[in-house]
Each structure stands twice: as structure tokens, then as C-alpha cells.
């Protein structure tokens, strides 16, 4: 679903990622752990296309959500043919889940439409714009790019209610401006409601566990499982700590240090890191 090959980048002229490679298949949950400053958040922002995160080498290939061409005229950014510069014939992915596209050639909002969801460590407050309005516009903007019909107001409200209930978030909260006045835990819960509504293919969750108490952690963990633990979806969890991994069991754990993945293992690697600290593993 996602193939990162030898990815390097700079942030404000400073090299952060230095030849990072990672492959994620549908149905998998991957966790990336690592010390502060290793480049974990940088990886998330680079995949999301944040301005200022300049790619200097490597490539990222992604199997997008199906694009229904024809409608909407100019909405063709997800047509694989447009992004296939390496070879004129499409490049089928190993799992046979469709053609891979060059993710880095897409604008940030097109990446979202392709099925990428970025869960923010610090969700941004947007005064004056309600969650419901924000999410409905976002979802319909994605659907437009994919050549799908927009959801009606009633359809959208039904969807929002269902996902809010799943995450135990009061619908009243969704009528309020995006993240304004939300506690740390409420922001993370709201992020997961957003993920549920947008229904992405790949979720990259950057420290979604930070700022959560034990109860909220359990709810958010269950939410991630309910929304993303599916054969056609995948999750990349970025975290400092083992504790979220108690609720969302990873298939693979990677250690990121100095801009590269230096070790990969199963869930036991997270326990080892927790027990012995990064310094041991990084030095080994």
C-alpha cells in the first residue's frame, strides 16, 4: 500500500530524514518508535506534504482509493497515468490492490483524497469554523477529487453521529469550532472522529496517545481498531511509548534514529525498548 524508498529531506535546510525506507501492506499496523529528534514527526509531515518539508531524495509510492474519472472535468490528480513517469505501463503493487502512484507529486489535499490521513500531535484550532462544517466540506472536497457525488446534509449528519458515538464524543462538541476550547484528550478524540468520518486507507497517527489519560487511551485505541483494523486499510503509529500499543497491537515495530530505520521487529521490540531504553537499542 505504501512504499517509502530511500527518502531524504530537509526542514529549513537541515537534513532530517536520511535515506528512510519502509514498506506497509494492506491489513498491517506498523509502529515507529524512537528518541526525540529522530525524525518521527518529520516523516509524518513529509508524507502529508507540509510546506517547508523539502524532499531531497528517494520516492514514496502509494495505492490510492479508487478514482472514478469522467465526472468533474479537471479533477484528475489521482489518475495514475498522470503520475506515472517512470514507466508508461502502470506498476501493480505486490498485493494486487491497484496501481501505485507517486505520492509526493500530489498536493496535500490530493493526498488526503487519495486516502491518506494524518493524525496530528497538536491538532490545530480553527475559530469560527464548526467541526461539522469543516468535516463536511473536507469530505466533499475529497469526494470531488475522487469523482464521487457529494454527501447531502442529512447523510453527513448521520455519518457524523455514528462516528461520534463510536468515540464517545458528544455531538454538541462537533457543533463547536474546530478544536477551540477542547482539552488535550478531547482534541485527540475529535481527531479520531475525523478519521472515522473521512474513512482513509492509510492513517499516520503522530503521537495520538500524548495527552490522553488511561480511559481516553482505551477509547481512542478501540476507535483506531474499529475504524482502521481492516484488510484493505493500514496504520502507521508514531509513538514514544509502549502504552498505546497495548490497545492497538502492531504487526511491526520500527526504531527510527537519526533519520533512518535502524531496527525492525515484532511487538516484542516495543517491550524491549520500554525496558531497556532507546540508547541500548540504538547503540546495539
Amino acid at each position: 500500500m505504501l512504499q517509502i524508498n530511500n527518502l531524504s529531506n530537509t526542514v529549513g535546510d537541515k537534513p532530517i530524514l536520511k535515506g528512510l525506507s519502509l514498506s506497509i501492506n494492506a491489513g498491517e499496523v506498523h509502529a515507529i518508535m524512537g528518541p526525540n529528534g529522530a525524525g518521527k514527526s518529520t516523516l509524518a509531515y513529509t508524507l502529508g506534504g507540509r510546506p517547508g518539508y523539502e524532499v531531497t531524495g528517494g520516492e514514496v509510492r502509494f495505492a490510492p482509493l479508487p478514482f472514478r474519472g469522467g465526472a468533474g472535468g479537471g479533477a484528475a490528480p489521482l489518475d495514475p497515468a498522470l503520475h506515472e513517469t517512470a514507466s508508461p505501463t502502470p506498476n501493480p503493487s505486490p498485493e494486487g490492490e491497484g496501481d501505485l502512484i507517486d505520492l509526493l507529486s500530489l498536493a496535500p489535499h490530493e493526498r488526503a483524497a487519495a486516502g491518506l490521513f494524518l493524525g496530528f500531535q497538536y491538532p490545530v484550532e480553527i475559530p469560527g469554523v464548526s467541526n461539522l462544517q469543516f468535516l463536511r466540506e473536507s469530505l466533499n472536497s475529497q469526494r470531488r477529487v475522487r469523482g464521487e457525488e457529494p454527501l447531502s446534509g442529512a447523510e453527513f449528519i448521520k455519518l457524523a453521529k455514528e462516528k461520534a458515538a463510536l468515540l464517545g464524543l458528544d455531538m454538541e462538541m462537533l457543533k463547536r469550532p474546530v478544536n477551540v476550547g477542547f482539552s488535550g484528550g478531547e482534541k485527540k478524540r475529535a481527531e479520531m472522529v475525523q478519521m472515522g468520518i473521512l474513512d482513509p486507507k492509510l492513517a499516520i497517527l503522530d503521537e495520538t496517545d500524548s495527552g490522553l489519560d488511561i480511559d481516553a487511551l482505551r477509547v481512542v485505541g478501540a476507535g483506531i481498531n474499529a475504524i482502521m483494523r481492516k484488510p484493505d486499510k493500514a496504520v502507521l503509529l508514531i509513538t514514544h511509548y509502549q502504552r498505546l500499543l497495548d490497545y492497538v497491537k502492531p504487526d511491526f515495530v520500527h526504531v527510527l534514529s537519526k533519520g533512518r530505520i535502524i531496527k525492525t521487529g515484532g511487538p516484542e521490540l516495543a517491550l524491549e525498548l520500554e525496558r531497556e531504553g532507546y540508547a541500548e537499542v540504538v547503540a546495539a
Partner: peptide
């Protein structure tokens, strides 16, 4: 805010 909105799919 603009990047956050783009990351949710808003053009």
C-alpha cells in the same frame, strides 16, 4: 490551519 485543513482534504 491551512495545512491542517489540506491534510483533511480541503482544497
Amino acid at each position: 490551519a491551512l495545512f491542517y485543513m489540506a491534510a483533511r482534504g480541503l482544497d
